[in-house]
Design a protein around this nucleic acid. Structure first.
Length: 440
RNA sequence: CGGAGUGUAGCGCAGUCUGGUAGCGCACCUUGUUCGGAACGAGGGGGUCGUAGGUUCGAAUCCUAUCACUCCGACCA
């Protein structure tokens, strides 16, 4: 993308309402714009990151055997009356009335709807296990939205729902999602630690929150330092092998890890001092099984091998991509701006032409840009008529991981500069060397 | 939902107490000198001062109502 033709409304000053670093940087980098309290428009740069996160989530959900569909944002209240949650949900639910005076709502979650879809179409245990997911905007009318997209009212969520014949099958589905989550967060460049979570009113055996450590995180968390060394499951992992899945889950739940709500001070203190990690964390995922909570009242039954009808055992698995964008920034930034992992960077390569109009720099940049495009690399070419300092500051703030700096001084010696955003390391290389390096 | 506060140009703010018809910095446009870490000068465009009433010869400023937004606490992917 040529920056001169792009829509990248960068702010030089920080809007006063932005308290935490991710919110500040998302506004300053022109990723989002607030349209109402807790409701944001995603500008081109922000949307790129969001879509890259979604892509990774999809790939890992699919790998684990989940199947994508798309449910609507608006739901009928009648569906929620079936489960009894229409009355229970309270003011967090945005209730709407259509022109025929029918009660509708903007979905805060989709258990009811997915159960309805399931029961209408699946009647036999032979069709199980089944795991359906979608990535859709949800709305929860939080009393007090804050921290930008970290706690917004409208937010994007990937939610998967598993269906199994019995509790044992549900457990296996849970394990698959657990492993898929480990892989997903690892690919996003994050270390996410599964922490035993409260199932709350939903009930059930299995529940974990995936927490990433960040100094500006919202909650206090405590865990064993081994979690920081654990390697995530490789892409050769076999999701059909229940024993392999169970072993991975076993490993990742073998050490102490809890958020402040579930913190057991005594158990934590029993760990050797140098193995204790006490930090702040952000919840980026939550998985749990809830048995037949919805299948019983909503009559989502299947025939078992013995011919008897039984309610299915279900589980649900959420990841918040929009929150992840903020979490990634909380986990990756410095005084100059955002530091994206390559996997989600809106642009992976940035080309800064320090002297627009200079034949040599223009030619070198054009050649670089063409080579990057040919290689299919997301590249932002800063071809604006701006001073060098402005271009450096822009590249750093929006967090382009690999920056190619092309100026007349270097070119006089046949060299351009390749800078790594994260480390700040710079190398002087020829244009061909840079192309070879970046397209390797 | 309780408590506190703020609405004046895209962003950050002054002006409000003490009414006289709106200003500064950044950004934007023109132009010149600049040009390797957010340059400088000259000129210029943009605001019915959140909204609606009221008081007044006259309201950003005083009064009333209303809306929006933010922060602190209790709740959440």
């Amino acid at each position: 993308m040529r920056m001169s033709r792009y829509f990248l409304p960068i702010l030089r000053e920080t809007p006063k309402e932005a308290e935490i670093v991710s919110h500040r940087l998302m506004l300053r980098a022109g990723m989002i714009r607030q349209e109402a309290s807790g409701i944001y428009a995603w500008l081109p740069l922000g949307l790129r990151v969001l879509e890259k996160i979604n892509k990774i989530i999809r790939e890992e959900q699919n790998r684990a055997g989940a199947i994508e569909l798309l449910m609507p944002t608006i739901q009928s209240a009648d569906l929620w009356r079936e489960s009894g949650r229409y009355e229970d949900y309270g003011k967090e639910m945005l209730r709407i009335r259509d022109r025929h005076e029918r009660d509708m709502l903007f979905g805060p979650t989709n258990e009811e709807m997915i159960t309805e879809i399931f029961r209408a179409n699946v009647k036999s245990y032979r069709d199980l296990p089944l795991n359906l997911y979608h990535i859709q905007w949800k709305f929860r009318d939080e009393v007090r939205p804050r921290f930008g997209v970290m706690r917004s009212r409208e937010f994007l969520m990937k939610d998967a729902y598993s269906f199994d014949l019995d509790a044992r099958g549900a457990q296996e589905s849970y394990h698959r999602m657990f492993v898929a989550y480990l892989r997903t967060f690892a690919r996003l460049g994050l270390t996410a630690i599964p922490m035993k979570a409260d199932t709350g009113p939903i009930g059930g055996e299995n529940s974990h929150e995936f927490i990433i450590l960040a100094s500006t995180g919202e909650s206090e968390v405590y865990c064993h330092k081994d979690f920081l060394q654990f390697s995530s499951p490789p892409d050769t992992v076999n999701f059909d092998d229940a024993a392999e899945m169970a072993a991975i889950v076993e490993k990742w739940t073998s050490r102490y890890a809890a958020t402040s709500e579930k913190h057991d001070q005594a158990a934590f203190a029993a760990l050797p001092k140098d193995e204790q990690v006490s930090a702040r964390g952000i919840e980026v995922g939550h998985i749990f099984t809830f048995g037949t909570k919805y299948s019983v009242p909503m009559k989502a039954n299947v025939s078992g091998p013995d011919g008897k009808e039984v309610p299915v055992h279900m589980g649900s698995y959420g990841i918040g991509p929009s929150r992840l964008v903020a979490a990634l920034i909380e986990a990756g930034h410095d005084d100059n701006g955002i530091i994206w992992p390559d996997a989600v960077a809106p642009f992976n390569v940035g080309i800064a032409n320090l002297k627009i109009g200079d034949a040599a720099t223009d030619a070198a940049c054009t050649r670089l840009y063409a080579a990057m495009q040919k290689a299919g690399i997301d590249t932002l070419y800063d071809d604006r008529d701006e001073r060098p300092g402005v271009k450096f500051a822009t590249m750093d703030m929006i967090g382009v991981p690999h920056q190619v700096i092309v100026g007349p001084k270097g070119l006089a010696e046949g060299k351009i500069e390749l800078k790594d955003r994260r480390s700040g390391a710079r190398e002087n290389l020829s244009v061909d060397e840079v192309i070879a390096r970046l397209t390797a």
